[in-house]
Write a protein that binds this DNA or RNA. Structure first.
Length: 530
RNA sequence: GACCCCAUCGUCUAGCCAGGUCCAGGACACCAGGUUUUCAUCCUGGUAACACGGGUUCAAAUCCCGUUGGGGUCGCCA
């Protein structure tokens, strides 16, 4: 849109006092910034480490909660013109009516006759006296034609809608009313939103007509689904956690959770299936249970080490494509080529495997220097212990060694922990199948190789990749018939406790000579009886 | 249930609007083989779809109708 002279407006729709918060707003800003999407108009929000207040653009304020007098002006106008009316039903009454309708298997529709039976004067008097009430829009009894840039034209019969609330009892406008007023006042020309808003568009159109406003272009984007066909939503994390708690069989985790159980928050959460745990508690429990929570929010993907341009690319591809076989593209291409007529009409399932494959390709396309820089930034934010415990030189070596093995910025972090753990914390489980195979199988055994190798490595003075290649190479020629694996695997187990690590020479260099020798000795001792 | 929308490989999709070049192309996933000091890669090959039924037409994945299936909405949430 910007290319065609459009402007991107950020408006904070915080008309629900219960749900809005500064954190939520800053979360939105952080996500947009990370994705590389800054807004032309909207609130000036502080970037990390900055302080900023005020507005960009001339049609602010951009927090709806700060525009209440504006809404009131238009609300009064509609009431005055008899296009809207005050209604005094309580939420309980309405709830009962809906339930009754459901029980009788009939569609519920707000019946305005009771509210309108009260004389206008009296309604105003009761309102002035402070009696709680809402304002409802008097929906005209005519079908509504929606013209959508993606879906085409659809006619909604008037009886599908009713006199919806446009001002809540707390004096805040509803979303429907606020967006219609703001879209007009902020000169909005294009409303591009999810398909779940399609019916709302009918309401908004009616409101625009009643208020004499201009009509923006509407485009309703397809929804994103989980692989199982359910709608992808924040609730999925909660669902995953509940399922994990329910299925947990690990006694240690159970014990931990027993203690946790008494925490009020967790108890309340378990009691109420519709409630959601706060992020910290949820991730703690997920950690204990060893279950990964699905990435749902933009920030989840950032934490997981996806590249913002890859996420943009993949998301754009869900429901849109440039035609032909082109799949990989950057922001500029998208800006230039995007058009509504190539947007899909049906929902798309979110395929994490494909996103991961895209991210893998993008990370492999990075230069080592670029990767090291991104990985460093990622660790500074999410894994500071790697920064603290490694020298800058060794950190960079680690990053470089992991580059080719990384699909995300995060996926080698867990398997790299042995680099920063103390030598004493490496455990050798003599009963482990893999370990036995490597250490005890073959002739000579891996353990024998390890013991023979110890003095050789102790004698290495040039502890570099080249130096180790020379030393190990010679050893392998002499003792293992040139088969590096026969020696590298026992050594890998000795220094990592596992069979997984970067290339062995790099691993040893990053670890350092002292730790390498220490760990070899500990391993030999631990396996002495095996 | 009512109303609205949608329908190509397991998934995202190209092709459809201007019917033949499509016994349907790509990507991811999957399977098989190969490379590799572990893990991860990498290379080669393969399986796999026009939902169904009627029309229209010389000809339909492409146009029309119906059926089935899927989705959205039906809040003092946004």
């Amino acid at each position: 849109a910007r290319q065609h002279g459009g402007r991107f407006i950020l408006r904070i729709e915080d008309t629900d006092q219960k749900r809005s918060s500064v954190e939520a707003t800053m979360g939105i800003a952080r996500d947009l910034w990370w994705l590389g999407l800054d807004w032309d108009e909207g609130p000036k929000l502080p970037r990390p480490g900055e302080s900023a207040m005020g507005d960009k653009g001339e049609f602010g304020p951009y927090f709806q909660s700060q525009r209440l007098t504006t809404y009131k002006e238009y609300l009064d106008k509609l009431v005055r013109e008899d296009k809207a009316y005050r209604a005094f039903d309580t939420p309980e009454q309405l709830d009962a009516q809906r339930k009754a309708a459901r029980a009788e298997n009939r569609n519920y529709r707000y019946d305005r006759t009771a509210a309108l039976a009260i004389p206008h004067q009296e309604r105003e008097r009761r309102a002035a006296a402070g009696e709680p009430h809402v304002i409802r829009f008097k929906l005209p009894d005519e079908p509504i034609v929606i013209r959508d840039a993606i879906l085409g034209e659809a006619t909604i019969p008037a009886e599908q809608l009713d006199d919806f609330v446009i001002c809540k009892a707390d004096g805040f406008p509803t979303y429907h009313f606020a967006v219609v007023v703001d879209d007009e006042l902020m000169r909005v020309t294009h409303v591009i939103r999810a398909q779940e808003h399609f019916m709302n568009t009918a309401r908004h159109l009616r409101l625009q007509e009643a208020l004499g406003f201009r009509r923006p272009v509407y485009a309703h984007l397809p929804l994103i689904f989980n692989p199982d066909g359910s709608k992808m939503s924040k609730r999925d994390k909660d669902k995953a956690l509940r399922a994990a708690v329910k299925q947990n069989k690990d006694p240690a985790a159970s014990a931990f959770l027993q203690n946790f159980w008494n925490h009020d928050a967790v108890t309340a959460w378990l009691a109420d299936k519709d409630s959601q745990l706060d992020v910290d508690t949820a991730s703690t429990i997920a950690d204990v249970l060893g279950v990964p929570l699905p990435e749902i929010n933009v920030d989840d993907f950032r934490r997981s080490g996806y590249l913002p341009e890859v996420l943009c690319n993949y998301l754009a591809l869900l429901g849109w494509n440039p035609g032909g076989d082109v799949e990989k593209f950057g922001r500029d291409f998208l800006v230039e080529r995007f058009s509504f007529d190539r947007v899909m009409k049906g929902p798309a399932k979110f395929d994490r495997a494909k996103l991961l494959a895209f991210n893998h390709d993008a990370i492999q396309a990075l230069s080592t220097e670029e990767f090291v820089g991104l990985f460093r930034a990622h660790c500074i934010e999410f894994h500071p212990e790697f920064i603290e415990k490694l020298t800058p030189e060794h950190f960079d070596l680690l990053a470089a060694a992991n580059h080719k093995r990384s699909k995300t910025l995060d996926d080698q972090v867990r398997s790299s922990r042995f680099f920063i753990d103390g030598d004493e914390s490496i455990e050798y489980d003599a009963a482990d199948k893999n370990l036995r195979k490597v250490m005890c199988g073959g002739e000579p055994t891996g353990r024998a190789h390890l013991e023979a190798l110890l003095p050789v490595l102790e004698g290495v003075s040039d502890w570099s990749v080249a130096g180790l290649e020379a030393a190990l190479g010679a050893f392998v020629q002499q003792h293992a018939g040139g088969n590096l694996g026969k020696v590298a695997q026992p050594l890998r187990i000795a220094v990592t406790g596992t069979t997984i690590s970067p290339a062995i020479h790099e691993t040893l260099v990053i670890l350092g000579k002292t730790s390498t020798i220490n760990r070899m000795r500990r391993c030999i001792t631990a396996l002495a009886g095996a």
